[in-house]
C-alpha cells in the first residue's frame, strides 16, 4: 500500500511541477506582451487567453499535491468541541466525505469531457479553445485528489497535525 501511495504522491508532485512551470510561463507571457506592445510590435493577444487558461490548469493540477502537503485551508471550531474519540471518528468521516466529493465531481468532469470530445465543442476567446481541454485539469485534479484523500483514510497520517517540517520554508 505504501508503494501505491508513493506512486500517487509522485504523480501529484509531477502535476504540481507542471503548475509551477505554468506560473513561470504566465509571467513570461505577460512581460513579453507588454514589451512587444511598447516596442511597437503586435501585442500577443493569444498569449493573454493562454494565460487565463493557465490559471485554470495551475489551480486544478496543484490540487492533489496540496491535499498531500495539507495546503488546503480549514477551520476546526466545531471539531474542537468533541472528545478525542469523537475527533478521531470525525476525522475519518471528513476524509470519506472528501473522497466521495472528489470522485463525484471528477466523474462529472469526466463525463463533461467525453461529451465535449464527442461533440467537438469549444470556447470562444481570442482563440477557440476545445472544451475537453477545459475539463481535463478538473478531472485530473479531482481524480487524483480522491486517491490522496484515500491515503489519509487508510494510513495513519492525519491532516490535522501539521508538522512544520513537512511544509518547507515559510
Amino acid at each position: 500500500m505504501t508503494t501505491f501511495f508513493d506512486i500517487v504522491g509522485r504523480v501529484s508532485w509531477l502535476l504540481a511541477v507542471v503548475a509551477k512551470l505554468l506560473i513561470g510561463m504566465l509571467i513570461l507571457f505577460v512581460v513579453s506582451d507588454v514589451l512587444a506592445r511598447n516596442l511597437g510590435m503586435r501585442a500577443l493577444t493569444w498569449a493573454i487567453s493562454a494565460s487565463e487558461y493557465s490559471l485554470l490548469y495551475i489551480t486544478f493540477l496543484s490540487m492533489p499535491w496540496l491535499v498531500r502537503i495539507k495546503g488546503h485551508v480549514f477551520v476546526v471550531f466545531l471539531r474542537g468541541l468533541l472528545p478525542p474519540a469523537g475527533r478521531a471518528a470525525l476525522e475519518k468521516l471528513v476524509y470519506l466525505a472528501c473522497i466521495v466529493l472528489c470522485l463525484y465531481l471528477g466523474w462529472i468532469a469526466a463525463s463533461s469531457l467525453s461529451v465535449a470530445l464527442a461533440k467537438g465543442t469549444y470556447e470562444t476567446r481570442t482563440f477557440d479553445m476545445p472544451k475537453w481541454a477545459v475539463f481535463l485539469p478538473i478531472m485530473l485534479g479531482f481524480g487524483l485528489s480522491a486517491l490522496e484523500w484515500l491515503r489519509y483514510l487508510l494510513t495513519p497520517v492525519s491532516m490535522y497535525d501539521i508538522d512544520p517540517t513537512e511544509m518547507e520554508g515559510m
Binding site: I23, L26, I27, V30, I48, S51, E52, Y53, L55, L56, I58, T59, F60, L105, I108, A109, S112, E123, V134, F135, I138
Partner: peptide, 26 residues
C-alpha cells in the same frame, strides 16, 4: 446544476483579473 458548477470552475478562475496574484506572490 452540478454539471453547471463544474463548468463554472473555468469561468471563475480562468480570468485575467486574477493573474496578478500568482505574479505578485512570485
Amino acid at each position: 446544476g452540478i454539471t453547471q458548477m463544474v463548468a463554472n470552475f473555468n469561468d471563475a478562475v480562468a480570468t485575467y483579473a486574477l493573474a496578478p496574484l500568482p505574479m505578485f506572490l512570485v
